[in-house]
């Protein structure tokens, strides 16, 4: 076995890269785990709303000339879209098998992709970074770190804290948790569970779209961009434990670490190069190991 070690400063910067990527993953996956865990709905179209968010950010930023306003308007719009979808479609599926949900949300992927093509076309677009975040901080003589990426990390951390606070410490959070653990009981105690579900689904969609919006300046905006994130999002949810926001955060950071260092470390086992050749697999190997060890995920509830 042969390792190629990294110099310390490079290692530190790679660690920063890993955390930053992990936090962005958490942001996208949090909405998915919320909807999945609390409502029991598998939303395959989650990635599509990430894409819609990015396209909204692009078109609204062009229109208003300001990414901040674009994000506020975009989040409001995606809340409305989410609520409408829940009311029209998802509502009818709570008592059905997961297979129906998979079918419906897969159909949504196709429809959203086609609508995107009709409304915005198939071109690749770029969203400019807001001026006040456009600077870079020099880290070494050749490398600087874009302030916008650090800002994204900050937003993700703030959002994680806010989500934890709302779910654990507020009355709304309590009703959400009650609805998740026993729908009938919560209903008989006078909680309007239908309304709670409408809100949770809308928030889930808005979180996906919000992630697409703030990621747009660094990821660029292009057709099918949601399909790239949806798979890794499911990996985050599965590793973290279904429905656990804390689990999603830990899993996303783990994936960030494994993905980043899988690409840059060099590892040979018995003369055969393992890394970075197999970097594309590293995340899935991590998932397999976690599932063997804890089939319910890191922070998932054990099946009774």
């Amino acid at each position: 076995m042969r390792w190629l070690a990294l110099p310390f400063d490079t290692f530190a910067i790679q660690l920063l890269n890993a955390v930053q990527y992990g936090l962005l993953l958490f942001l996208v996956a949090s909405g998915l785990t919320l909807v999945f865990g609390i409502m029991g709905v598998i939303n395959l179209a989650h990635g599509s709303f990430y894409m819609i968010g990015a396209y909204l950010a692009w078109s609204l930023a062009e229109h208003f000339g300001n990414l901040g306003i674009a994000i506020v308007v975009g989040v409001a719009l995606s809340l409305l879209i989410g609520a409408a979808l829940e009311w029209l479609f998802i509502r009818r599926l709570y008592d059905r098998d997961h297979l129906y949900q998979v079918l419906l949300t897969y159909g949504l992927i196709l429809i959203v992709e086609e609508l995107r093509s009709i409304v915005w076309g198939d071109d690749v677009h770029a969203v400019p970074v807001p001026d006040w975040l456009a600077a870079s901080i020099p880290l070494t003589d050749t490398l600087s770190y874009p302030v916008y990426r650090l800002w994204i990390s900050g937003v993700c951390i703030a959002l994680a804290i806010a989500m934890a606070f709302v779910i654990q410490r507020t009355r709304i959070g309590m009703t959400i948790r009650a609805g998740a653990s026993n729908r009938e009981m919560a209903q008989s105690l006078g909680i309007d569970i239908r309304f709670v579900q409408l809100v949770v689904f809308a928030v889930g969609i808005a979180l996906a779209a919000f992630a697409g919006m703030i990621a747009a300046p660094v990821s660029s905006v292009f057709p099918g961009m949601g399909n790239q994130v949806i798979i890794i999002c499911f990996v985050v949810v599965v590793i973290g434990g279904i429905g656990s926001v804390k689990g999603a955060l830990v899993a996303a950071l783990l994936i960030g670490l494994v993905d980043t260092f899988g690409k840059v470390l060099e590892l040979e086992v018995a003369g055969i190069p393992v890394l970075p050749e197999l970097a594309g697999m590293s995340v899935y190997v991590l998932m397999a190991i976690v599932l063997l060890w804890r089939p319910e995920g890191l922070f998932g509830k054990r099946a009774p």
Partner: peptide, 19 residues
């Protein structure tokens, strides 16, 4: 340097180029 296709998380490899 290679990334799995069509991964676009370039940051780690850019750090490597810089070093």
């Amino acid at each position: 340097l290679y990334l799995p296709f069509p991964n676009v998380e370039f940051q780690a490899l850019l750090t490597q180029i810089a070093s």
